[in-house]
Nucleic acid binder design. Sequence first.
DNA 1: TTGTCTGCAAATGTTTTGCATTTAC
DNA 2: GTAAATGCAAAACATTTGCAGACAA
Lengths: 136, 136
Amino acid sequence: MSDLLERLLGRGWRMTSQRRVVAEVLSGDHIHLTADEVHARAVRRLPEISRSTVYNTLGELVSLGEVAEVSTDGRAKRYDPNARRSHQHLVCSGCGTIRDVHPVGDPLAGLPAEQRFGFTVSDAEITYRGLCPSCA
Amino acid sequence: MSDLLERLLGRGWRMTSQRRVVAEVLSGDHIHLTADEVHARAVRRLPEISRSTVYNTLGELVSLGEVAEVSTDGRAKRYDPNARRSHQHLVCSGCGTIRDVHPVGDPLAGLPAEQRFGFTVSDAEITYRGLCPSCA
DNA sequence: TTGTCTGCAAATGTTTTGCATTTAC
DNA sequence: GTAAATGCAAAACATTTGCAGACAA
């Protein structure tokens, strides 16, 4: 069973066939699907599943903190099931492929106090850009 | 005259009243407007300007590398006129305010070779998140 | 049983496109 | 004069919402 699904069951999340399929589709490493792609894959396993349900479910998973919304730049948001493991993204400027990466060091260290405008800074999101081996 | 407008004229960009107004609206520091906000402000100066022209113009400015698209997370893209000066963003999780910041050090240094998946990494985009003084 | 999830269809918000007209160079 | 920009209206997408019926607990 998928890690995501397992965590959700452990949290007592109300389970339905639709929710299970969405959780299964999202499971794995380097998964960054759009809502529509999630729906397309879900339909293969459960033909009746509706787009609204996929949106509802994704929205709920994001609220629960189990899935992260990633806006790389295209128009549709992408959903990343590895919200629990802190990580950043490496995006290919050629084909758009996304990989999860784990940079070393404290990302907040680069922002000196005088650059913080009085903000309480709690987090940094980094998107590395470059070309993947196939596109280079 | 605005810096942006000046640079565009220097590049021999074909000038029209609509384009001038869009460039003027975008000028300044810490400016991060949506296409719709750009249109609203442009209409004040030039009532006939259409939304399509604003979109066309913004798209062209992005292609020229004079303006950057910033997807903070909401649905509409925001446009940042300071694409030429390398900088990153600090976003308030409360009210959404965006400030431009200039972190110290090489942002690519945090990504070790074994984390690069064979990519040629050329750039890093950082979004710092926190609460601004009013929201804290 | 009961509260909630699901699915449909319609609405909303953002951006793009086709094409006739106007305009900068 | 000519190629390119503009504006309109309509289309294309992405996402949200309202509500009746279905379903998990």
